[in-house]
Design a binder for these strands. Sequence first.
DNA 1: TTGACATATTCTCATATAGGAATGTAATCT
DNA 2: AGATTACATTCCTATATGAGAATATGTCAA
Lengths: 121, 121
Amino acid sequence: MPRAATTSDAFNAVAEPRRREILSYLAMQERSVGEIVISLRLAQPSVSKHLRVLRDVGLVRSHRRGRQMLYRTNAAAIRPIHQWTETFERLWLHQLVRIKERAEAKAQKSALISPIEKERQ
Amino acid sequence: MPRAATTSDAFNAVAEPRRREILSYLAMQERSVGEIVISLRLAQPSVSKHLRVLRDVGLVRSHRRGRQMLYRTNAAAIRPIHQWTETFERLWLHQLVRIKERAEAKAQKSALISPIEKERQ
DNA sequence: TTGACATATTCTCATATAGGAATGTAATCT
DNA sequence: AGATTACATTCCTATATGAGAATATGTCAA
């Protein structure tokens, strides 16, 4: 069995760095395909294909304006990823506290060493 | 060019559903490979291979205890994903507000319709 | 040392890519 | 209608994958 399709869910879709760039770019403002091509310096077919993947999983919405297709990020589709990572937030916050505590303990210890001892380190 | 390696970053590593399950399972408590195999009902080689990927990108840490290998989630490695999704948080919150406003406007409108009109709907 | 247990690696295979090139489709303009 | 602009799709290819099966490695126990 190969890897799950890029269109299987938001996690797989955003695994590709260019697609994350596109999502960030479209988060500020609605943009045409051509604008994405120029701003992110990607080949046009490449952009169209990435947008197709993003659209299939609901990460972007699109509509036509004349000959252009305008795309915008649908932030709600990113939320499940946010929520999944959030379940780990307590853990890394706890880790950060411990790192800080260790740093302070070390500084404390260092302050107790005489200047002469300190020079040897 | 194929897809980026699963070991290229945390985004690619967590794209695989089983790897997310493993990370959630190991978040509570340190566990041996055998415990993962039993609890998540996966084949042992499969678990070992997933753990290898997770370890390569720093999402889990491991150490030996006798013949067992104990693994635990390194939450700090999940943080970049959380931070990336966080940049979109304002957008979906804004969306949620609009949805709520529309719902309220609709309820308001509904309240203005006479009971007789209402029955026809 | 030999055997048993726990985990890791290797091998094979079907499959879904992402990029590049070429082509198709749709809308506008003259 | 014909030409041009703007996107989308198709075809091609090298490659990384995940599952399963088999095997290798490492650790303890008798």
